[in-house]
Write a protein that binds this DNA or RNA. Structure first.
Lengths: 217, 217
DNA sequence: CTCAAATTGTAACATAGTTTACATTCTTTT
DNA sequence: AAAAGAATGTAAACTATGTTACAATTTGAG
């Protein structure tokens, strides 16, 4: 029970390293992406899905007035965009590179052939999608039932799970991922710091008392 | 583009009839469930998933203080509980029968054998899970960016998609599905009625002007 | 080194939606 | 037919968060 339910988002932690998608990307050229570069856009048709050879990518929803809700942060060795690819409907989310990335784009012909030649990959894909369903359900659960401070606490713990005790991100980012405003993030983090649970830097947060954060819910 | 994006919840409309899971349940005994009977419980281990031969089932999340958030209404011919089954983690949601149901419980041994004998079923499962990912993403999108009245309008349209112009459910139910309180549902529906968009009965809502409801967002 | 841009802190104010409470209406049971 | 239970309508008080605004700090670019 090291990290228990903390697959809130970003959280593919529970399965990190247990996927082997290199086979899927085998033989495909890697493309370079710069930070901030768009990979796919909400509403577009899904002709490919993507394998991350290196770098980090966020997927997110955008409201009509431009607000952004982050769904997942994908990392090296993971795939993204496979759901819209398989169900044939337009993309529900967008994805952009958070860092420099090297990405392979997998098209339908390549995917079909590789799955046919490696039947065990189908089962991996089923498990991967099942994990994504779990993560999104947890997302709904959290936003439905937790207060702002609780969601922010969960998020910090989930990010620390991946990055270590010092999490590097802005309050703006945390707001987008937890579904609260930047101002609320700053206020809540200020309180956390006052209680000695965290230490705030510029663009970074060091978790001092993770146990205390867990006790918030 | 008859129903466009309205897979909000309950909404498997976009794919209705396009699944053929009978093969998966073939040879398994059907069990009878009464309305209100529990099928599986949040937090429990997933040893089976389920095929609905007849009846309707809701899946939902429960908060610590007992509040309920409905995720999906499943119907005849659909399967449920497959995500936790495949990813091997405890159930994130519960499921109970809404009506009398006949259900087949599919265990791991039976599932493995059937998928091995019918390789095309794996691809169906991938498409089904992909559709579920889409639905949950839409769920997150709606609760993140829409007001109470907009979510209720969407929900009514989605339900009408399945049940016809007269939707049979309580305000309590709508609240659970849209993520708002019963009181808010009653207030919003009252306004909709005053505008002539709907007609309210006892346990039923007739949509008079669906177009007007769509214009709300 | 300087200036512009990004990030953070904080306060006042606005508000959508919850909670609580109670009356009313409809349905089912006896 | 009466009584009990469900479902609905509506109002008042409350609250968590968003919004707006602006100052202070840190970083990065030229």
């Amino acid at each position: 029970m090291e990290h228990q339910e903390f697959q809130f988002f970003g959280g593919r932690a529970s399965e990190r390293g247990s996927w082997d998608w290199e086979l899927l990307a085998n033989g495909l050229p890697l493309q370079d992406y710069r930070p901030g570069q768009l990979i796919y856009l909400q509403g577009s048709q899904a002709t490919h899905f993507y394998y991350i050879s290196s770098g980090r990518i966020k997927s997110y929803l955008t409201s009509q007035d431009g607000a952004e809700r982050i769904l997942t942060v994908y990392r090296q060795g993971e795939i993204l965009g496979e759901a819209s690819f398989f169900d044939g409907q337009p993309r529900v989310s967008s994805a952009t590179a958070l860092t420099k990335c090297r990405i392979a784009a997998i098209d339908r012909e390549h995917c079909d052939r590789t799955l046919r030649q490696n039947p065990q990959l189908s089962m991996s894909m089923i498990r991967y999608l099942a994990m994504t369903v779990r993560q999104l359900s947890t997302h709904v659960d959290d936003t439905a039932f937790l207060r702002a401070d609780q969601r922010i606490a969960r998020l910090l713990l989930a990010l620390a799970e991946e990055d270590g005790v010092t999490v590097h991100c802005t309050h703006e980012f945390l707001g987008g991922a937890a579904g609260v405003s930047r101002v609320t993030v700053s206020r809540v983090l200020g309180q956390f710091q006052k209680c000695g649970m965290i230490h705030l830097g510029y663009g970074s947060i060091r978790l001092l008392e993770p146990k205390a954060l867990e006790r918030l819910f």
